[in-house]
């Protein structure tokens, strides 16, 4: 028993130290990026100034001038917000119907929806370019909003479905008895009850839209170009602009990483389609 006690005592100190060390190593690249964003471009590449430097806000002040940051950022905001709202607008009624009045086909429809998510985007790249150019939609906000909605729709329906399934059916039945119509049920009973689930689904959908880097890069040039496109366009700064590139990168990912902290739990459910509990 003595040995066991000693082991636990040792591991009581060693365990947290190890956990903290791993967490710091994994977080280091982000910390390094944030740190570099406060250095001038000249200081950013000097090894002797790696951790000791005079912080400056110059990179953030010049973000608009250097990269036209706000044009890309506002495109990202517009497309991600609109796509999230549109996705919810289509997904909530669908998930509602699937959860409260399931039929024999419901499971198959859900599985089929999921399978659309597994189609490799590259396989349909040219038809998308061809169609959108022919329709005059290439490089428009409308196109990006639609594409972002479509790629996230299966996951959103799926997540909402798993939330709605847990709401007791009696509550909806009671509302029906009171003569509330379907829209009323959704608005007055379902949405207030499942508010938390809907909010975290929306948050996750927004994050996925914001980070999307295939269609937003391949289907835009300037008008609807998002932050992914901006960063991708500045992929090789030849070492001259580490400071300003870090600043624009930090500005692009900072809000999303913070938002992400609030939906860790939903992430597991959303990305595994409820298969891990």
């Amino acid at each position: 028993m003595a040995i066991v006690a000693q082991q636990t005592k040792l591991s009581k100190i060693l365990w947290p130290v190890l956990a903290w060390a791993v967490a710091l190593i994994i977080f280091f690249p982000i910390a390094y990026m944030v740190m570099t964003s406060f250095k001038t471009d000249a200081d950013a590449v000097k090894p002797e100034l790696l951790f000791t430097f005079t912080p400056t806000l110059e990179n953030y002040a010049n973000m608009t001038e250097n990269y036209d940051y706000w044009r890309f950022a506002s495109n990202s905001i517009i497309t991600s917000v609109a796509a999230t709202l549109f996705t919810l607008f289509v997904a909530i009624p669908c998930a509602y119907a699937m959860a409260f009045t399931p039929s024999r086909g419901t499971k198959d429809i859900l599985m089929w929806m999921l399978s659309t998510k597994m189609l490799p985007a590259a396989a349909v790249l040219y038809p998308m370019i061809y169609m959108t150019k022919a329709a005059g939609l290439y490089d428009t906000h409308f196109l990006i909003i639609m594409v972002l909605s479509l790629i996230n729709l299966p996951i959103v329906i799926w997540m909402l479905f798993t939330y709605f399934k847990d709401i007791p059916k009696d509550i909806i039945e009671a509302a029906k008895m009171d003569g509330v119509n379907t829209w009323g049920e959704v608005r007055e009973v379902l949405i207030p009850l499942a508010w938390g689930g809907i909010a975290s689904t929306a948050l996750l959908c927004f994050i996925f839209c914001w980070n999307e880097a295939y269609w937003t890069v391949r289907l835009t040039t300037t008008e609807a170009a998002t932050l992914s496109k901006l960063i991708e366009g500045n992929r090789a700064p030849e070492g001259l602009f580490f400071g300003r590139l870090s600043a624009v990168s930090t500005a692009a990912v900072g809000p999303i990483v913070v938002l992400g902290w609030f939906c860790q739990k939903q992430l597991v459910q959303g990305l595994t389609f409820g298969a891990v509990k």
Binding site: F27, N211, L227, S228, K229, V253, V257
Partner: peptide, 19 residues
């Protein structure tokens, strides 16, 4: 530990390959 997952792929790649 969870933070890297929310970094957009474009930033992830630029950060790693350059800095």
């Amino acid at each position: 530990l969870i933070s890297p997952f929310f970094v957009m792929p474009a930033v992830n790649a630029v950060l790693w390959i350059n800095m």
